[in-house]
Amino acid sequence: MSGPALEIRELKKEYEDVTALDGVSLTVPEGSFFGLLGPNGAGKTTFINILVGLVRKSGGTARVFGHDVEADYQEARNAIGLAPQEFNVDRFFPIREVLEHKAGYHGIPAHEARQRADEVLKQVGIYDKRDTRFDWLSGGMKRRFLLARALITDPDLLILDEPSAGVDVQLRRDLWDLVTELNEQGTTILLTTHYIEEAERLCDEVAILDSGSVRAVATPEELKGRGADRIVVELRSTPTEVPALLAGDDRVESVDLNGHKLEVTAREGGLVAPELVRELDRAGLEIVDLEIARTSLEEIFVEMTRTAERDATPDERASDAVDEDEPAEEQPVAPDGGRSEAVDR
């Protein structure tokens, strides 16, 4: 391996008149736990699919551990384990064999592939279903299987595309424990998610992607620092007017009096609060209670993507039409009425 896990420069993807990715640049360090946050249609799945060869880029470069995803596609793909959103699994074979095949494609010999298949099935807790075909698994088990398939090749870069979508709390926590452990063992993890709590809890660094563009790259703490906290002070008595507090402190956005409650909105609320307490004391106002509500990553996310939407060009807004959760066009219907393996020739 050489270079960062991911080195992306000016990555573009255009679908006729829709721009799905508009010059994305990112660097994901080796060994990090990196979150890619964004609303539906932001371009997250397009981004991932370019890395694994399911989407062809329109411009820019993408390297996986130094391997160009097009020129050195075999090396790049060998480094990646992907757990996608879609249930794109071979329906013809029991899941253990599907895993053995996937391992084989990555050059793992048959005897070792069987052993690894059993290991990862145990790791995700569905070993007892090893002889069952994918269609017969429950929704949660299907999600676990996708993770097992991503792990079977022991990837250096594990990509999880919305892994928590539609799973119960227990599975989500199991998943978090497992990927945290993998990350601690050195696996680089790229996580896309709608669940901000998930990113906040797991990721070292997050990028906010919206309408095909990166709006911010920072640690969750740094991002939260960019938002305003709310300090609510309950006073013994109600002042007759809003006291002149914290004048000249450019971190303070507003000071409002609501009965005997004083509400101060300020960035870095934890640092502003002591000064606020001192000034209230000097003004002779007795404090009964004080509470600091830290801004959440979710609020920052919503604020950033809303701002982006307001600023977006019509082209960027059109890219929302490329929504990874929704089929772009009507899908044809199989003779068996669905996408099952009942059609066999």
Binding site: L54, H106, R149, R339
Partner: peptide, 21 residues
């Protein structure tokens, strides 16, 4: 059939995302 069914159910992705030439 094999190619089309794989495309239809998207499991051909298992092959396409592998390091096979």
């Amino acid at each position: 059939f094999s190619i089309f069914h794989g495309r239809w159910n998207e499991y051909i992705d298992e092959t396409l995302t592998s390091p096979l030439s």
